[in-house]
Amino acid sequence: MGFDITRALPLVQLQHIDKVYDNGEIAQKVLDDLSLTVYQGEYVSMVGPSGSGKSTLMNLIGCLDRASGGAYRFKGTDVYQAYSQEQLSDMRLRFIGFIFQNYSLFPKLSALENVMTPLMYNQTPRGARKAIAMEALERVGLGDKARNLPCQLSGGQQQRVAIARALVKKPELILADEPTGNLDSENSAMILELFEQLHKDGNSLIVITHEDQVARHSQRMITLQDGRVV
């Protein structure tokens, strides 16, 4: 299933977003009147110099943080108006899969258990969890490492477990902040291929990167500079 913009619905709508970091002494405007729309099924890459506000923007889209000004609509709902903190959490649980640059696994849980956690949060019946998680792990090629703890996996493998964990609840939007930043080209290629696959399956992806090779895989490239889309 390809992407047809004429049919697609807006998934993420940012309107005149400001983000100010104020540590009491200096206030820094990191995002400045930023507007951006991402449609359902889109594969977007986000590039820009270091410090341009990419991670900040991703955290806003993922509802991990709030904007200082402007409106954010997710699937048409104004999240700042309509959602409480707990509803935001529920929204993350249902619709968003995060992949962070630094491996973000639970260190004391095995690969399989890490992938199972979102299924616990969304109360998938206990009996079904293992099979679903195993399927996700196999999808990232780590079926044989299910019992390994994160410290018993290579960096690339850890990142793939993190991807499996993001995929396992079948989120509508996958947010990845420099997912290949710490990986060699072989591992990077494997992950990009996975993203491509996810996109084909109809998922929406926003991938932050500073690597051209990664950006080239996406449909649309958004460039940030000084907190604005250029």
Binding site: F98, Y121, N122
Partner: peptide, 8 residues
């Protein structure tokens, strides 16, 4: 991380 994953 748990919160990012949507832990209630």
């Amino acid at each position: 991380i748990a919160k990012a994953l949507g832990a209630p």
